[in-house]
Design a protein around this nucleic acid. Structure first.
Lengths: 257, 257
DNA sequence: CGATGACCAAATGAGCTTATCTGGTCATTC
DNA sequence: GAATGACCAGATAAGCTCATTTGGTCATCG
């Protein structure tokens, strides 16, 4: 027979510690599936509760409102994305070059429908989350990432400096946005996989930013350091925000991702 | 006093020949302004007639339906855009290099709100024109342009061939889309002018496609020929379609641009 | 005979009513 | 005291009516 405490039954006390978190994730998983299938506007708390196998009230033991739940969902996706980028980057044998960062970043975004929807402000998926809320912060955060990181690269001559930082931010942002949005707009026989597009995007940005001469070992080290440092910082912030979203502790009114 | 036939007065017979065309353009100008201000859905024939200073019935002497009018409007914009590109390209002292083509193309699109709206499927502007009609063809046409032109470039070694044509089409399309859509998404202090963005886009695509060694005079000539040949062909088709849209002759049911 | 604008059917939209749904609560249960 | 789900007020949707607007026509005018 199953051990009595691993499977919380209806009405029975469920683990207040680690099991709680697992349940939170189960709920978020259900929410993720539903929002992608039906969109934010048509995804109800009842649906989520049913799909997650909990009662509606339970959801309100985790988040104080529907909006807070979806904020948690997006924040979780962001953390997972950054973790994926961080891991891929650290494992890259060629070092954490800009090219490698762009490739992993692109791939991580492209394989995350919620992330993509949020970056592109896809009203189909995010519905009123888009229209009501001032600005989804992810884009700003990504730009800020570009900026700090770019600054370091420029300082060490790891990218060309005949373009201004602002120009380069525009190039990076523009190119990435474009690659993120083309897939559905391409005819089937021209459609490339996420990996394929990520590689192409990395190549495009590499060439757009490249200083011309190969990086010295020093520069590679600096670039690697800058990339990892900033990803760590981004992760720290993202994890902190996610942490706020996974406790019942009052969030105030700030539900932005 | 003014000559009696240059200014058609209300109720008076107006020129059936050249004046007719001028009037058509006046109507289209009014329509353009209104659709950009209010969007397709909220722009009425009455509004257009009033703004153009003609009676409603007159509009139906030019087009058999509201939809046909807007088709003409978009087609006209397309022809004007291609003409601008063609002229800019031919005048470029460096020859009609791919880089020059991309720059003029980007600039022509960016300075044409309707073109941009149509390429990006901006529902805000195009309203039901988007939702109802199968596919706005402009995007497909642009891709087809890329394709034929690219083929020629590849054949003559004017671009790298370690990427497949399909990959390059994705790079070109993706990058252009991205640059077209970033302007409103950038914070004011990062916003660049259309010219500036066009230059950056051209540079990005140039680097993304460049074969590495500078073009020989022969290759430059070939590239120039290919660019102008295709633009001419695109213009021919676009003008033909526009011609159909500017005569009362029944269009059939095909109102796609 | 080109241009007009009164005219009409159809579409759209505002306003209202009614019915259903949904976010959020909380007394009850185990 | 954690989890539940019946419960409620407010939101949303569906259905309907009625008034206005709109695309499109055509008798009339100059």
């Amino acid at each position: 027979m199953p051990s009595p405490d691993t499977e919380p039954r209806a009405g029975r006390g469920a683990p207040p510690g680690p099991g709680r978190e697992e349940r939170a994730h189960r709920i978020l998983n259900a929410a993720a599936e539903l929002i992608l299938r039906w969109g934010y506007d048509k995804t109800t708390i009842d649906d989520i509760a049913r799909a997650a196998g909990v009662a509606k009230g339970t959801i309100y033991l985790h988040w104080k409102s529907r909006e807070a739940l979806f904020a948690a969902l997006l924040r979780r996706d962001r953390v997972a994305m950054l973790e994926q980028v961080r891991a891929g980057l650290a494992a890259d044998p060629g070092g954490a070059t800009p090219r490698s960062l762009f490739r992993h970043l692109a791939l991580a975004v492209m394989t995350r429908p919620l992330m993509k929807a949020s970056l592109l402000s896809d009203a189909e998926v995010l519905g009123k989350l888009i229209r009501n809320k001032p600005t989804v912060q992810t884009a700003a955060a990504m730009r800020s990432l570009s900026e700090v990181y770019l600054g370091a690269l420029r300082e060490h001559g790891a990218v060309r400096t005949d373009l201004s930082a602002v120009e380069q931010v525009n190039v990076i942002t523009g190119t990435m946005y474009g690659f993120f949005m083309i897939t559905p707009r391409m005819p089937e026989d021209h459609r490339l996989s996420g990996e394929h597009l990520a590689e192409l995007l990395a190549d495009t940005l590499h060439r757009a930013l490249d200083a011309g001469r190969p990086l010295t070992p020093d520069q590679t080290a600096e670039a690697t350091g800058a990339a990892l440092a900033f990803l760590d910082e981004a992760l720290r912030v993202a994890r902190e925000r996610l942490g706020l979203s996974l406790t019942t502790t009052d969030l105030g009114e700030d539900y932005r991702q």
